[in-house]
Amino acid sequence: MNSLILSAATRFLAPLMLAYSLFILLRGHNEPGGGFIGGLVAATAFALYAKAEDTGAVRRAMRIAPELLSMLGLGAAVMAGVWGWWEGDAFLESVWPFLVVEDGKKEGLPVGSALLFDVGVYMVVVGAVTALFLALEDDASRSPDDEDADQSGER
């Protein structure tokens, strides 16, 4: 698509959406939010960028293949589980290395294996959704029998 308004707006919106997606990811620990929803917002940002520019620009901006990102996320989630087993007793048990509990009061930073798991989910969702979207977008702009492709410049 070749729209000045969209590409100008995207330059502001996409970074904003990415930042907000990280906010949602971190907020998800105790409140509504989390890796899945945050990942969807981030994927939306990339989709918007793909619409405003083209899919090549998104691939360059991401720097890492979206499929690989999603599989790395899967690896991170599995490792979060292994971490829980290593430090605690059970696979996927929550580990809080920076958190100390004293007389029922929590002290320190609530950062641990649960966050790593959530980040993994975030990466899986961003990677998978972006990969799907880019594949579809590439297809739509390439197929010659698609009449819309010729007119898309005017819309």
Binding site: A128, L132, A135, L136, S143
Partner: peptide, 20 residues
Amino acid sequence: IVIGFGLLAFTLVLVYRLYG
């Protein structure tokens, strides 16, 4: 919902390819 979303996206791509 999450799983359904993934499957739906895949099916949509598949149908699109089928159409192609």
